[in-house]
Each structure stands twice: as structure tokens, then as C-alpha cells.
Design a protein around this nucleic acid. Structure first.
Lengths: 215, 215
DNA sequence: TTCGAACCGTACCGTACGGTACGCCTCTCT
DNA sequence: AGAGAGGCGTACCGTACGGTACGGTTCGAA
């Protein structure tokens, strides 16, 4: 369908959103075994309507992912008065949001679907998830890092490197293991340790890039 | 087919390995659009033979992934005489192997296939990839970390935490972006920076857990 | 009240693909 | 040389699913 990434200006009617919700539910339940018939039945609509609204199966999938991925909200951080305490709080907030998002069933499903899609030259969904996942975080985090650097709170060669290190310190091997269905890593299992992990990640990041560290 | 993870004692005849090679090639080329007919044609064998040897499509897929994943070799590290220099070299070697593996097309394909599979309750492939990927690294890395701790070269609360931090520092967001088909992150693009990234990761890890750091 | 658009439910079509059956060839063992 | 096993190629079957067509219903506008 659409190759370009749709901006959110494209709004769906409540009925259409109900359909998308049904599609997402089925996606979460049945994995990628999403059939048009199943969506139609679940949403109590006709297949003809699905095709009229979304073009084809890929269109429906894209709309679902797009609509859902855009819901992920990043924390807004006040960068006007930055001190070390505020910076640490921001970092922890980012880490917390990132972790809670990543371990959610919806996120796992969306990522799996997009990856499956990316395995067939269609990088449509992959780009949407990327744009609303890692890249969105990068967009939001970088200005803060740079502001902190200007305030002499952080030191790093490039904000890109700092962002990627932060991502790694927070996510570690959690996402890939969840995507692969590691049974030794349940959602609740990770959830219980979020606060500790968040704190550890922030500590480590500050230890590496804090101005005090490499002075 | 088999739910348990097959140990490598199960050996394939050369002819069978040729079939598996064909299957892997098709997997890399066509994504998950792997059809039995395609494999049979590519390998110049009959479908009946495929079913005889591998049971069904899942069996073939499992055999392919299993066979290929087991090929990933981790570096062997001499842990008898560990000094800081040797430790750093080991860490860098691990990081290098991990990165080069992860960005390879075969690894990407295998992970994508396993993730797609995991989206349908069949965590068979996921476990295999997991076992030969992250968990294998963990098994190999942990003893070294612990040896280094015993030699007073490292300090960490738990080797599990240290391993996960190492993984995060090395992999960062590279794997997920490649899996999602990020076009701004080509293989050669990453490859060029491997050495610098490896060094950075080792530096950061030692900065965080080196005995000198938190003395 | 009537018209028409939107939409539901269902039936239908074509195709792709997993899985099976079968005829023929080749190679090995006796 | 004869027999049987293993394996190739192809034809075939059943089904699941994407996509389309169509009759019936609701609802809002004129």
C-alpha cells in the first residue's frame, strides 16, 4: 500500500479503530496468523468493508501497527533547569518507560510482526516500528543529553554514541530474549526488577558519561 | 516434530547437509517464504525425500536452524593466567565475535525465522537460537568474568548482571535495528566500525567493573 | 415515504502450498 | 544378472486463505 510512513494526521473513525483493536487483539493472541476472515468476525464487520477501508491485508496490518505504535508516549522532560538530580530523574524515567514498553505484550507482538514482515523485503512495518521505537527514543533523548553536556553535567564524544550506550545499558538482552520467546524470562519476572534495573542503568550511564567521572 | 532441543549428536549425511544448505539459502533469499517445493527443486531432491528425512515443514526448518546455529563458534579463552591485558583481549574478542555474528545475514535470517516462529506459540526455533546465541555467550563469558573476579581484576555484585551489561554495551540497538530492516544501518556500515565499537565496549565495561574503577 | 449509501453476512473463486502417491531410474548387495 | 532399497520427478489432493460478488438491512437525507 503506502510506502511512505504515514503521519498521524490520518485519523480513523471510531468504527475503524474498533476494527484495528480487533486486529491487534488477534495479532497478540494468534501471533502472525492474522486472517481477514478472523478480523471481520471479531469486529463484526464484512470482509468487503475491510478491503474498502484498508485496501488489502498489508494495508490492514500497516494501519494496525501504525495506529498502535503511535500510541507509545515518551516522557516529556523539562530541559530548562537541569541539575544532576533532574538529569538522573530524566534518565530513570526514560529507562523506565523504555523497559515497560519493551516488555509489554503489545510491543512484543508489534516487533515480531514487523520483523516477520521485514523478512520479506517489505520493510514497511519495520520502518514504522523503528520510527516509533528506537528512533523516537533517540530523538527525545539526544536533546536532553546535549543540554546536559552544555550544562557540564555530561561529557561524551558524540550524542549518538551516548544514546546508543544508554539504550544498551537499559535494554541489554531483554528484548531479543522476549522476542525469541525465552521461557525463563516472563513479563512479570522482568517487571519485578524494573526499578532496580532502571537505577542500575542510570548509575552506569552516569558513571561512564558523568562529568565527574572523566574529569 | 521434536519438542526437546536436539543435541548435536544427531548428525546429517552430506546429502542431507546439502539439502539443509539449500534450505538456508532460500531462507536467506526469500525470507520466511520457504516452500517445500522450492527446497526440493533447489536441492534437486523429491519432496517425498524431504518428508521422509525431516517429517514435515517444521522439522526441516528446525533441522536447518539447529544445524546452522550450532556452527556459531565462540572464542576459547585461556583462563589460567589472567592479567588485565589478557582480560581486555578476551573481552574484545568476545565483543568482536558477537558483533560479527549478529550483523551477518545468516544470523539475521535465523533470528527472524525464530522470532516469526515464536509468534505462533511454537518456541522451538526460538529456544534453539537462544541456546546457541545469547545463552551460549553467557555460558562462555561467565566463567571468565568469575575468574577475573577471583583474580581481583573485576568487581561485580553478580556475574549475571555483569554479563548482561556486557551484552548491552556490545550489541546496543544494532541487532533490533537490523532485524527490523533499518535501511540506515547496512551491514558494511556497521562492519567498518566494529573495531572501534569493540574497543569502546571493552573500555566501558572495564570502567564499570574493573577493580581499579570502584576501589 | 422513498432513495441511496454504507455496511453486514455469506457464499464463492482462484491460488498457493503442505502433504501423499506413484512411476521410473540407479546403485548396491547377493 | 536379478532383486530390492533409496531416491528423483511429477502429478495429484485437500485445505486455508486472500480477494470479490451479491443480497439483505439499517439509516440518514430529501
Amino acid at each position: 500500500m503506502a510506502l511512505a510512513i504515514k503521519v498521524n494526521e490520518e485519523t480513523f473513525t471510531p468504527r475503524q479503530q474498533a476494527v484495528l483493536t480487533a486486529a491487534l487483539d488477534l495479532l497478540v493472541e494468534n501471533g502472525d496468523g492474522l486472517t481477514m476472515t478472523a478480523v471481520a468476525r471479531r469486529a463484526s464487520c464484512s470482509k468487503e468493508t475491510l478491503y474498502k477501508w484498508f485496501g488489502d491485508r498489508d494495508g490492514l496490518l500497516t494501519a494496525t501497527v501504525q495506529w498502535q505504535a503511535a500510541k507509545v508516549r515518551m516522557p516529556f522532560v523539562d530541559r530548562s533547569h537541569l541539575n544532576l538530580k533532574a538529569l538522573r530523574a530524566s534518565l530513570e524515567q526514560f529507562a523506565r518507560d523504555l523497559l515497560t514498553t519493551i516488555i509489554g505484550e503489545v510491543s512484543i507482538t508489534l516487533n515480531r510482526t514487523a520483523i516477520t514482515h521485514a523478512a520479506q523485503e517489505k520493510d514497511d512495518l519495520g520502518n514504522i516500528v523503528l520510527e516509533n521505537g528506537p528512533l523516537a527514543i533517540r530523538r527525545r533523548l539526544k536533546p536532553i543529553l546535549e543540554a546536559a553536556r552544555d550544562a557540564r553535567l555530561l561529557r561524551f564524544p558524540s550524542s549518538e554514541e551516548a544514546y546508543r550506550t544508554f539504550f544498551g545499558l537499559v535494554v541489554r538482552d531483554v528484548q531479543i530474549r522476549l522476542l525469541l520467546g525465552d521461557k525463563g524470562l516472563t513479563q512479570s519476572n522482568v517487571e519485578a526488577n524494573i526499578e532496580a534495573d532502571v537505577k542500575t542503568a542510570a548509575d552506569q550511564f552516569l558513571a561512564l558519561y558523568g562529568a565527574k567521572a572523566n574529569s
